[in-house]
Amino acid sequence: MQTEARVGAVMDGRGSAAGGAVVVDGGPSRKLITQHRHQSQIGTVPQLLAGGVAGAISKTCTAPLARLTILFQLQGMHANAASLKKASIWQEASRIVHEEGFRAFWKGNLVTIAHRLPYSSISFYAFERYKNVLQLILGVESQGENITADLCIRLVGGGLAGITAASVTYPLDLVRTRLAAQTNVIYYRGIWHALQTISREEGIAGLYKGMGATLLGVGPNLAISFSVYDTVRSYWQSHRPDDSTVLVSLACGSLSGVASSTVTFPLDLVRRRIQLEGAGGRAHVYKTGLFGTFSHIIRTEGLRGLYRGILPEYYKVVPSIGIVFMTYEKMKQLLSDID
């Protein structure tokens, strides 16, 4: 869920990936710095648009794996965990094709795009604002003066930006989960029907089910991503300084995605299940809040129950971040030329 925010924050904070060049001391450095500052001043709107488009394209390309992840996460919610078969990605994918058709892999993708565009835009914008405020508070005039302060600014700023974006766009995320979780029985006919039905049957508060788990997972997700990305990237560049910046960013970004997903996946699973509480008039399963839901899953399904669907999640993370990086770079290049 936080990939695009993470990508935009890292690339903007590091400078090298966004600017396409590494500034070194010497005569040409002033020219490159001037160009980078000029791009930052005129590129705010194109950057937001590029991030939103990159997120939408990435989500569309990895939608089949995203839906498989959701379906696996929900296994055991309305069934006896002991009777569940061992999760098989290919069996579930075959079932979707035979019972629902190939297009069902993209079920709920329209609301995903509707959610991702504003989510990415708010993330980028909020990160810039939070970063400026934190720089003033810590007395950091420019990036690179203090590595510890820079890392702290990126971690806190990225976490606050993710929380802000998630809070504003959360109802769309909940609707996306419910649409993707539908199999043969169609209860919600679309975005607006789902929003209206949930509001009518569960109240306005129903649109924010699972928000606590979401906000709780946003901070650690971005913190781990930034830490892993910066550490591995610095180590890589110190040992292989001539490697392609794009290649290094893709590899380190993918690794950071896998690391953050591994740690925060249980929170994501709990969030999905709480979002499905009461969907389609079904009985409530978890009635004791966030921590009670954790306890219920561990008691009935074991610790492995918290990681149902982690395999398709891994398969999704690497291409998703790769597509985001490539699309983001290309969109920025095209929009800069137009500008």
Results as ranks from 00 to 15, higher is better:
Pro266Asp: 05
Glu201Ile: 11
Ile122Trp: 05
Ala17Arg: 08
Ile274Pro: 01
Glu100Arg: 07
Arg154Glu: 11
Trp236Glu: 02
Cys61Leu: 07
Leu250Gln: 08
Glu145Tyr: 04
Ser295Trp: 12
Thr169Tyr: 14
Tyr130Ser: 11
Leu172Asp: 01
Gly52Trp: 01
Val263Pro: 03
Gln47Ile: 03
His78Val: 03
Leu195Pro: 10
Thr231Ile: 03
Ser238Thr: 10
Leu179Val: 02
Thr231Glu: 01
Gly159Asp: 03
Gly281Ser: 10
Ala63Thr: 09
Val140Ser: 13
Leu195Phe: 13
Phe72Tyr: 03
Glu301Thr: 07
Leu179Thr: 03
Pro312Gln: 01
Gly190Ala: 09
Ser88Gln: 09
Arg282Gly: 02
Gln143Ala: 15
Arg67Leu: 02
Tyr235Val: 05
Val23Gly: 09
Gly253Glu: 14
Ala181Cys: 07
Glu92Cys: 00
Thr245Asn: 11
Ile186Ala: 04
Gly43Tyr: 08
Gly280Phe: 05
Ile204Lys: 10
Leu215Gly: 12
Ser123Asn: 11
Tyr328Lys: 11
Lys316Asp: 04
Asn80Phe: 04
Glu99Pro: 03
Leu179Arg: 00
Gly309Asp: 00
Gly217Cys: 13
Leu138Trp: 14
Ser238Leu: 02
His38Leu: 06
Ala165Trp: 06
Tyr235Met: 06
His78Trp: 06
Phe291Val: 08
Lys59Asp: 06
Ser254Met: 05
Leu32Ile: 07
Ile33Phe: 13
Trp236Ile: 13
Leu160Glu: 03
Leu136Asp: 10
Arg6Met: 08
Gly144His: 07
Leu136Arg: 09
Asn221Ala: 10
Ala114Pro: 05
Arg200Gln: 15
Leu65Glu: 01
Ala213Phe: 08
Ala279Ser: 10
Val185Ile: 14
Ala81Glu: 12
Ile57Asp: 06
Ala9Cys: 05
Phe325Gly: 04
Arg6Glu: 08
Val24Trp: 04
Glu145Asp: 14
Ser227Cys: 08
Ile274Tyr: 06
Pro220Leu: 08
Lys330Arg: 15
Val45Lys: 08
Ser254Asp: 10
Lys209Met: 04
Asn184Met: 03
Trp90Leu: 07
Ala50Pro: 02
Thr60Asp: 13
Phe265Met: 05
Lys59Met: 12
Ile33Leu: 14
Thr288Met: 06
Glu92Val: 00
Leu136His: 11
Arg240Gln: 15
Thr3Val: 14
Tyr187Cys: 12
Gln143Leu: 13
Gly43Pro: 05
Ser260Tyr: 15
Thr262His: 01
Ala259Cys: 12
Arg240Cys: 05
Asn109Tyr: 03
Ile57Trp: 06
Leu48Tyr: 13
Thr34Leu: 09
Asn109Ile: 14
Gln135Arg: 15
Tyr314Trp: 15
Glu277Arg: 08
Lys332Gly: 10
Glu313Val: 00
Leu174Lys: 02
Tyr328Asp: 10
His115Gly: 07
Ala93Asp: 00
Pro118Ile: 04
Asp150His: 01
Asn109Val: 13
Gly15Asn: 05
